[in-house]
Amino acid sequence: MGSLAAAIAPSSGRRATTGPETVRDTLWFSGLYEETVDNVYRYAYVLMRNADQAEDVTADAFLKAWRSRHNLRSESSAQAWLLSIAHNSAMSLLRSNREVAGLDDIDEQEDTSADPESEVFAGMEAGRLQAAIRRLTAEQQQVVFLRFFEGLHHEDVARRLGSNANAVRAVQFRALTRLRKLLEEDYVGVTA
């Protein structure tokens, strides 16, 4: 976790548990937002494939983070905590999209809205890969995101996730194996 949020964390090392928010809590939260919002948004974008929906997920994740701030165990795991909340928000939004659309598999949907940010995601390969990433477990998604999107070393990923290096390597291996399988299945499905 960066220094800003940690620097203004309450001196007790814990958020206010319940009741009215304190100035320190609000300063801590705004610092946390500054430091992590870009990562949370990018993570949401990879899952949602739509800038507006990624924004919805990001806003929802920070709202939930604020409301459950007393559950954050340590500053060092703040990003993992936020990514987990964002994952749950994204899955919830995907489920409601599926109910609204009445589709069995929302993963097959392509975002065709005139969204300038989605232009960089143009191309079947990127869409297929993103759809496959959605099917990973939350833990696998977070390792893939921190390793490949943030470019972190596996030991840094372990620190961010409150895990250990061997476990991160194992999750990383399983995630890539699963992605390869999903992409192969998808390729067979497309060509069949």
């Binding site: 990018r42 974008y45 990879v46 800038a51 940010e117 960089v120 995601f121 390969e125 990127a126 890969l129 993103q130 893939v144 490949f148 999107f149 470019g151 992605l179």
Partner: peptide, 10 residues
């Protein structure tokens, strides 16, 4: 492929 996707993620 993941690295390419990461590079394209805005």
């Amino acid at each position: 492929d993941l690295r390419v996707l990461a590079g394209r993620t805005t």
